Amino acid sequence: MSGKTTPTDAMLLLDNQLCFALYSTSLAMTKLYKPLLDELGLTYPQYLAMLVLWEKDGLTVSELGERLFLDSGTLTPLLKRLEASGFLTRLRDVQDERRVHISLTAAGRKLKSRAARIPGCILSATQCSIPELVALTQQVQALRQRLVA
């Protein structure tokens, strides 16, 4: 084999893969969040669910799943753990037992004030300006939309 790198070889280099850049960045971001979330008694997926509920309480499991791009099979155990921790309640709809409504408890609402410092910690760790982070977030969201379309 020759020492020349062909265009096909370059396309198959790990460092040229968008998927790996996103994956490894996601791992680094989750690692950054871990000690901050440990203080709250939350895992990263639980934190994401709480963010959505702090934004709009009283959603159904399916509405929460749509917002987080997760199916109910993934969400149900996560929500059961949050309920066991006293942060939310789950209640079946009396008119349609397939629908489960999620409501924050007082402890779940109170947790929001403790979580308020997390975005500043993340901003500091990224060493990005707010406009840079907003632009990057919008680019990644646009990419996600194109991929799921």
Rank of each mutant, 00 (worst) to 15 (best):
V94Y: 02
L70K: 15
C19Q: 14
D71H: 14
R81N: 10
L143K: 08
T105Q: 08
A10Y: 04
F87M: 05
C128K: 11
K56W: 01
V100Y: 03
V61L: 13
D96V: 08
V140M: 10
Y47H: 13
F20P: 00
Y44K: 13
A49Q: 06
R92C: 02
M1P: 07
L64W: 09
A84I: 03
L18I: 11
V140R: 07
M11C: 09
D38A: 15
R146P: 00
L36Y: 04
I122G: 03
L136C: 10
R144V: 08
D38P: 03
R114T: 00
M29K: 10
K4T: 14
G108C: 01
V52P: 01
L91Y: 01
A21K: 12
A135L: 08
S103D: 10
T105M: 09
T89N: 13
L91R: 14
Q145K: 12
T126N: 02
L27E: 11
R146A: 12
L79F: 03
E97P: 04
L143F: 15
A116N: 08
K4I: 13
A149H: 04
E132Q: 15
D57R: 02
K31D: 13
V134W: 12
P35C: 09
K110C: 03
I130D: 14
Q127H: 12
R114Q: 13
G73T: 05
L136A: 14
L88N: 06
L22H: 02
V61C: 11
F87E: 07
E66M: 12
